[in-house]
Design a protein around this nucleic acid. Structure first.
Lengths: 244, 244
DNA sequence: GAGTGGTCTAGACCACCCA
DNA sequence: GGGTGGTCTAGACCACTCC
């Protein structure tokens, strides 16, 4: 019902509200670290289990996040992301007044997984260029991506600087621009490898975005498997033109 | 890294794997209820706290879900949902071999919230037709929606049968069809009212989808605030045609 | 090396669901 | 009314981070 029953909210609720209020007042700045769990549990006169329950709720709400074995931090504002737009990560992040960065985990030619073969419409056991990268916003690891490129269209790509935008490399080196896009969004939990790269706990809530990209000739050129920390992103889709 | 270190996975991991395996083998059918927590904790020779930690992980992964004070259940397959498509809920669900249902929580004329005024491009303190509904798939409450309609376009709508598809009512009664759509997707936690309607715990992970719909004349006719149980949905966007 | 988060134990009481 | 899930207590040990 709309009017909440006047019920006691319990210790977890009390802690939650106190932290929400402190964060809302700006006393804990974005990306700032919370005090140690033991200190907080003393402060609220409760056990660590109960305290962690409250922290987990705030994590689910996206107000705070955790870095594995490093502690709890205040989540900064979400970044808006339009998977249909043809801008790249750095441009998108900078347009929102934030500071992007990219690291290459690895880049190599590998046999594609069955899933990737299907997405790229390639025969079984095809080879693809696989690039795994971690993207940061304001220093925080926020996105783990695996790009899978059809190698037929990108000879010599592995020799280039892959911390740069792929969009720019495509256009500058190969004369390829993005055309149609298809994407899927699924709420999931982070697998071990993605979690490690994002300094998150395995099983943390995340948003998986799978994109299949075509070029100006409508050829499937690559697919991206993206894993976003769930509190870092807001997907926003505006279809520019649409015939009735 | 790709190759996981051969580290002990702990009690939580053991329980997790056992349940994953049982569910994967189909021994626990979709929407089937798991045994009581106390029984499971005896079975795995551990405490309820540890057991619940394992169940929470599986919940985050979307393999099982919880109904408030009723227990844990096996999640059925996700439904694919394309917010750009002009089909309605019932048609979409049935097309995937599932069984849809709709209940109206309430329907009334109310002063719009500031957020809704902004979405509908209405002046402050405008009145809107607010319809809140719960949607089920195979009996399970999966989606809580608040529709907000510009009342100028829908006189007398509150007298109609609102368990039906709004899309059909729009077309049949008012000659209005959907045109352009804008939508946003945000991973959040369920607020109290949505949680109650979905029989979920407040703070459960969810996907918020906010849609702003226009008609064939490009007028903004309504906006939907949708709250999906996070394990029930997979958003899939295919843009039919797009000019370069 | 001190302190932190990650994990786990062994209980308890209460509110609520369901038979 | 019995059993369930929701919540909470008061500890403990370990692996890891950071100084």
């Amino acid at each position: 019902m709309s009017d909440a029953p006047p019920r006691s909210i319990g210790a977890v609720g009390t802690i939650r509200q106190a932290l929400v209020e402190q964060i809302g007042q700006g006393l804990l700045p974005p990306n700032g670290k919370l005090p140690a769990e033991r200190r907080l549990s003393e402060l609220f006169d409760t056990t660590r289990i109960t305290l962690r329950e409250a922290l987990s709720q705030l994590e689910a709400e996206g107000l705070i996040y955790r870095e594995e074995r490093r502690g709890w931090f205040v989540s900064p504002a979400r970044v808006r992301y339009n998977p249909l737009a043809r801008t790249h990560f750095h441009a998108m992040v900078e347009a929102q007044g934030r500071s992007p960065a990219t690291e290459v985990v690895h880049a190599r030619l590998v046999p594609a997984s069955g899933e990737v073969c299907a997405l790229l419409a390639l025969p079984a056991l095809s080879k693809v260029i696989q690039i795994r990268r971690v993207r940061r916003i304001d220093g925080r690891q926020v996105l783990y991506v695996e790009h899978n490129l059809n190698p037929a269209y990108f000879p010599g790509l592995l020799e280039l600087d892959l911390t740069r935008s792929l969009t720019e490399l495509y256009a500058g080196q190969y004369g390829i621009r993005y055309g149609r896009v298809r994407f899927e969004i699924t709420p999931i939990a982070l697998a071990a490898d993605a979690a490690l790269a994002l300094r998150a706990a395995a099983g943390s809530p995340a948003l998986q975005i799978t994109r299949v990209n075509r070029d100006q000739f409508d050829r499937i050129i690559d697919c991206d498997l993206e894993y976003w920390r769930h509190d870092a992103i807001q997907v926003s889709v505006e279809v520019p033109e649409q015939s009735e």
